[in-house]
Design a protein around this nucleic acid. Structure first.
Lengths: 235, 235
DNA sequence: CCGGAACCTCAAGTCTTACATAATACGAAT
DNA sequence: ATTCGTATTATGTAAGACTTGAGGTTCCGG
């Protein structure tokens, strides 16, 4: 079919803007050069001249890379490669208000998935100090009647510590990004079912399992601990 | 100490650039106005005038929002709000080559966490059609001696289907982002331990559990299924 | 009355030039 | 030699002009 081939050709005319092309070229340049973090790239003017476009276009392309966290530009040094802090970047752009409801719900679920799934890493990497700190945290565990804000604070401290124990920095960042979303979903009217405050496995119980149990036991206990959230999703 | 207080004061001097401020103002504007997707924001020139800065600055601020996926600008229409596709955005910026080793390893682990943690959602939301498709996929499960590429393809098909079953679109996007990273880490020399090809619980076994078992059983089976990866991390 | 072609308009995209700012390098002065 | 100031340099900000392409309008022909 000469026709479909032709269509394909038409499709392939680049509808992309100048900046798009430059951006692609720069990214490719970065990849090719096997750049390391801290390495610096040519000056804006040099790039402009060598690519035959204005400095404006170069700046816009560089700006994109900067927003994506690929580079960082200093006043005199020019631009240097940086290791992108993925979730830091998204975190900025992602306040709950701008996300649609489906995504919000998805992220709510994502937290549950993570905390159940990370059992093995907790057991593998926990140190005696970690355990001591966990015990200290649950030592102050408030009962259900206690002040609401204090409960929240305690929740964050405990679960945050668990993430920390996994030794997975990316996971922690991810959690920090999820945190406001989770809170938002939890309290906005997004989930129809009411908040259930039955207590299942407590933080104390989880720590007990971390100390004497297995990842398998922990997963089940955590699943149980999170039952209040699950029931709002599933019932 | 008057000194440290002074230092604190000095820290609080506004080191942010003009564009930073404008960006913040715009984001705030978006939040305040309770904008809906598809709504459009003022023209660049108007913004420039009303904020008292040059169009250049406005453009850069807008560009940031665009890169973050908050807005989209058309030739004549001006800029309109869009629902940000979080992982789509990062996916673009995030080829394995630009990530440092720790982050790569973190993301490798993240996949393991997700697949173990998502058990409940699979059981809750699977449909008979999903189950049939899973069976069809494992029906073609290659044995270990088979062609390497075919194995990869099969892996992706099977695990990808599991993500799909969870009904969590954000999770799927996250996985698609993780995929190349996982593959990269798996084959680069990042993990010292050799690839182990012992077979543990098979895909077939997982499907069997999905059909007749419980989330609890599935988590353990999946943990076992992924043992080859875990052992490379832990041993 | 309707369809559509030619034209117009507008806002974003691109380019150019000029100046401001901040970090570094280097040299002079104490 | 240390310190201060100055020159240099590359990014940051500004302003103005021109280009482009998508939307709207007019007006002609059916």
């Amino acid at each position: 079919m000469a026709f479909s081939a032709l269509i394909e050709d038409f499709k392939s005319v680049d509808t992309s803007s100048l900046v798009d092309k430059v951006e692609a070229k720069l990214v490719q340049l970065l990849k090719d050069r096997k750049l390391k973090v801290g390495d610096s790239i040519p000056k804006e003017i040099e790039l402009a001249e060598s690519l035959g476009v204005s400095r404006t276009v170069i700046r816009e392309a560089l700006l994109r890379l900067r927003v994506m966290g690929l580079i960082e530009s200093k006043k005199k040094k020019g631009a240097v490669i940086t290791s992108p802090d993925i979730f830091g970047i998204i975190g900025k752009s992602m306040s709950p208000h701008v996300l649609d409801q489906d995504t919000l719900r998805d992220m709510f679920e994502l937290r549950l998935i993570l905390e159940i799934g990370m059992a093995d890493f907790i057991f593998q990497r926990i140190t005696p100090e970690d355990l001591a700190e966990l015990k200290k945290i649950v030592g102050k565990e408030p009962d259900a009647t206690q002040d609401y804000l204090f409960n929240i604070e305690h929740e964050i401290a405990f679960h945050g510590k668990l993430y920390e124990i996994t030794g997975n920095e990316t996971l922690r960042k991810f959690q920090r990004m999820l945190l406001p979303v989770f809170d938002y979903v939890h309290h906005s009217g997004l989930l129809k079912k009411q908040i259930n405050n039955k207590r299942f496995v407590s933080h104390r119980g989880l720590v007990e399992i971390i100390e004497n149990g297995s990842p398998e036991m922990f997963r089940n206990a955590m699943r149980n601990h999170l039952e209040n959230h699950f029931s709002r999703l599933f019932d």
